[in-house]
Design a binder for these strands. Sequence first.
DNA 1: TATTGTTATACTCTATAACTATA
DNA 2: TATAGTTATAGAGTATAACAATA
Lengths: 188, 188
Amino acid sequence: MSLPGADAPPVSGQELALLFRRVSRFMSRISHRCDHAHHAQARVLGIVRERGSISQAELLDLLDVRSSSLSELLGKLERAGLITRTRNEQDRRGFLVSVAGGEAGAVAPGPDMDREGAESVFACLGEDERRQLAGLLSRLVETLEREPSGLGDGLGFGPGGGLRRGCMGRGRECAARGGRPGRRSRTE
Amino acid sequence: MSLPGADAPPVSGQELALLFRRVSRFMSRISHRCDHAHHAQARVLGIVRERGSISQAELLDLLDVRSSSLSELLGKLERAGLITRTRNEQDRRGFLVSVAGGEAGAVAPGPDMDREGAESVFACLGEDERRQLAGLLSRLVETLEREPSGLGDGLGFGPGGGLRRGCMGRGRECAARGGRPGRRSRTE
DNA sequence: TATTGTTATACTCTATAACTATA
DNA sequence: TATAGTTATAGAGTATAACAATA
């Protein structure tokens, strides 16, 4: 056997998950600050910069959050002078998000840390390793996206075991029927 | 050339980061609910269950959060009847965290989703692939942990570019000198 | 004094629900 | 009616700072 580690002990999903979390944690920290603060804003800004300008709807898909969450993020970035929103004149319901003209958005405050940070995290991997990792991760993503839900429904957490759930595969903003205004279901 | 994808285009750090985030997202959702809600509690509970009982200090190291954050988490789990905290009689400053006796903690509400969820996420990978992935991730973690900080200091985000920073490698709870009580530095 | 943990406060991110404007 | 987005409200997670108890 010349394959390295061919008869090594098997790796559990939990071990992988742990490793994953640790790397994620580094990504988050590096991506912006200590931990997760502003992380989402940085991500949005990174995408907008890459695209130059992008419809809010498309942004919604890329980020995979609710429109209300995106609204808030964009509001902050706009107030900070980093992006601008202009109405799409073809379909006046939508907006086009772009980097703020001239100074602020394009160069100034938020550096391209989403790119630089990402590079620095994976800097220790060679080209082949990157391809390997990308291949494995792609497989995971594809598989997970294909699965309709994959896990049955018995994930109830917390006493009372309510948990309604209505996520993953959204139909017009999730649309969980039941539950009182402004609340998720049952918390703590 | 017989190596698969040997002359494929190189993979950027950003691409890897994106893949990473997507998988993380699935892990989070599966790990508990829709997104990240209760995720941290589930993680704590998972660790406590695995160990049977564990000192709060050790838990702190494993989770890599501030003691105040852990305090809050443990408070919620304790109020939910999932864990108990007992004083360490040898050193009465510390607590020992354990699964709540009998019903609640050990079996009842929070299933072992940290384990089941993790397995389900990585189910599509064979043994060799798991080892491969684990190897790559371990390399990343080790490298990132070795680096003293790795990124210089010029990550200022937001206008004003304050950002003090005093994280990563904590000396008695971060100890960021400067900054007003209860505030981080400058927000939005 | 140093260590261990708690409490008060603040802030990001995300969600649901209800709403407005446009198609 | 359906789609695109906003606003109000709520709650999780995490942080800093100040404090209490123990060593």
